[in-house]
Simulated assay, not measured.
Amino acid sequence: MGMTYWLNVRDGDMIESEENDLSATCKLTDALDKMCLEIGLLAVSEFVDSTEMSMEYDDEFDLPDDEDEFYDEGKRPYPLDEMRWCEANSGLDTFQALQARLSNAPDSFELEPDEIDMLAAELDEIIELLQAAAGQGHTFHLELLG
């Protein structure tokens, strides 16, 4: 499996993780970022948190043997404040604009039809989650996983 994102919403000291792979969004981040710059919105990469990835490749972190217990309770073996958290509303602005561009001008994405379908489905999912998060005043990020 290549790299992917999971969308995590933060509610106080808990993380609600949608463990659905957003691999098309991940794979196409550079192209999406370029489009965000053209539209004048925050880039997709601005919402990405790679704490988990850095931990996997960094021996300084002393992980407990049973790290599953953290995931079960929505907790992580490191402080949540060390992660990058973004306003759900700014994410909504970016992803809704990308969704509109994708449905109005799919050719501008220079993607294969199946990539467009996957991206469209992922954008729908991201927007739905962000609308809920924004309504509750929660923050979010796209967690980079590999």
Results as ranks from 00 to 15, higher is better:
Cys36Gln: 05
Cys86Ser: 15
Asn104Ile: 03
Glu87Ala: 08
Glu52Val: 14
Glu60Cys: 06
Leu32Gln: 07
Asp58Met: 06
Glu67Arg: 12
Asp117Leu: 10
Arg101Trp: 00
Glu52Thr: 11
Tyr78Gly: 06
Glu87Thr: 01
Asp65Phe: 11
Ile127Lys: 00
Leu41Arg: 12
Pro113Cys: 01
Thr94Phe: 02
Ala121Ile: 01
Asp65Lys: 11
Asp65Thr: 10
Glu82Thr: 10
Leu28Phe: 02
Leu28Asn: 06
Leu92Phe: 08
Thr29Pro: 01
Lys34Gln: 13
Ala88Leu: 02
Glu122Val: 05
Glu128Ile: 02
Glu125Asn: 13
Glu60Gly: 07
Phe47Ala: 05
Ser108Asp: 05
Glu110Lys: 07
Glu46Asp: 14
Gly91Glu: 05
Ser50Glu: 12
Asp33Val: 01
Tyr57Met: 10
Ala43Tyr: 00
Ile126Asp: 09
Leu63Arg: 04
Asp59Thr: 07
Glu112Gly: 02
Glu73Arg: 09
Asn89Asp: 14
Ala121Lys: 00
Pro106Arg: 01
Asp66Pro: 01
Asp72Cys: 04
Met55Asp: 04
Ile39Tyr: 02
Met35Asn: 01
Pro64Met: 10
Met35Glu: 07
Leu119Ile: 09
Asp117Phe: 03
Glu112Met: 11
Cys36Phe: 02
Asp66Asn: 15
Glu67Leu: 09
Pro64Gly: 06
Pro77Trp: 11
Lys34Asn: 13
Lys75Ile: 11
Met83Asp: 10
Pro79Gln: 10
Asn104Ser: 14
Gln99Gly: 04
Leu119Met: 04
Ile116Asp: 03
Leu119Ala: 07
Phe47Arg: 04
Arg76Phe: 11
Leu123Tyr: 12
Arg84Pro: 01
Tyr78Met: 13
Asp93Cys: 13
Glu60Ala: 14
Pro79Val: 03
Lys75Thr: 13
Leu92Tyr: 06
Thr29Lys: 13
Phe70Cys: 08
Asp117Thr: 08
Asp72Glu: 15
Glu60Leu: 13
Glu56Val: 07
Asp107Glu: 03
Ala97Asn: 14
Glu38Pro: 00
Ser90Arg: 02
Asp114Lys: 09
Pro77Val: 04
Glu128Trp: 02
Lys34Ile: 03
Leu32Phe: 06
Asp117Trp: 02
Glu60Asp: 15
Leu102Gln: 12
Ile39Gln: 07
Ala100Trp: 04
Ala43Leu: 07
Glu115Met: 06
Glu46Lys: 09
Glu128Leu: 04
Cys86Met: 15
Ile127Asn: 03
Glu125Thr: 12
Val44His: 00
Leu102Ile: 09
Gly74Lys: 08
Thr51Tyr: 04
Tyr57Gln: 07
Ala31Asp: 08
Pro106Ala: 03
Met83Gly: 09
Ala105Gln: 09
Glu125His: 09
Lys75Pro: 00
Arg101Asp: 03
Glu112Ala: 15
Pro64Asn: 09
Glu110Ile: 03
Leu80Gly: 08
Glu67Trp: 14
Asp59Ala: 11
Asp62Val: 15
Leu32Val: 07
Leu28Met: 09
Asp117Ile: 06
Ile116Tyr: 00
Pro64Ser: 12
Ala97Leu: 03
